[in-house]
Design a protein around this nucleic acid. Structure first.
Length: 155
DNA sequence: GCCAACGTTGGC
DNA sequence: GCCAACGTTGGC
């Protein structure tokens, strides 16, 4: 299957791109997604080798700050079974997982982060899921054309 | 901190 | 299956 592209949102206070840079092998599991639409992407669509735009939300400025690649496809998010985790889901059973995650590895830190305001002003990005009214998906698809434009803006 | 937008829950 | 109430997201 052809390589596809995604945008992952993270609040830097939770797990920032710098945290990813410091992580072992600059790799992390993407836990904590608790939205069914995003879950379906993680479980069914996102494949090893796919590209990820790393987006910092709820910070100043919100921005795409770098790229990563998927190094492991969807598998059950273990935090759903952990009563001590803030992502614990009492309705999830190990034999019937409800939530999934993938592993990603850092690829490139942008020379210049691309803030939301820039994305909004850039021709060719008007169709980005991120920019749609009321869009809240924390894992969302990005087209190859959008990927190219954002990466160019990032330097 | 505000609040619009959206997703989920649960009574009926 | 409807929909009001509630909780969450996330830009501002």
């Amino acid at each position: 299957m052809a390589k596809r592209y995604w945008l992952f949102k993270s609040e830097p206070s939770e797990f920032s791109f710098e945290d990813l840079a410091r992580a072992r092998e600059q790799t992390t599991f993407w836990d904590g997604v608790r939205n069914y639409q995003a879950r379906n992407l993680l479980r069914d669509e996102i494949q090893v080798g796919d590209g990820v735009l790393y987006y910092h939300s709820s910070t100043e400025p919100t921005a795409v700050i770098g790229t990563a690649e998927v190094v492991r496809a969807g598998y059950p998010d273990h935090t759903q079974f952990d009563p001590k985790s803030s992502h614990f889901d009492p309705g999830a059973k190990p034999e019937e997982p409800r939530w999934y995650m993938v592993d990603i590895r850092l690829v490139r830190s942008f020379a210049q982060p691309v803030p939301l305001a820039t994305l909004k002003q850039t021709p060719g990005l008007a169709g980005m899921t991120l920019l749609q009214r009321g869009s809240r998906l924390s894992v969302q698809p990005v087209s190859a054309a959008e990927w190219e434009i954002v990466c160019r803006l990032g330097g």
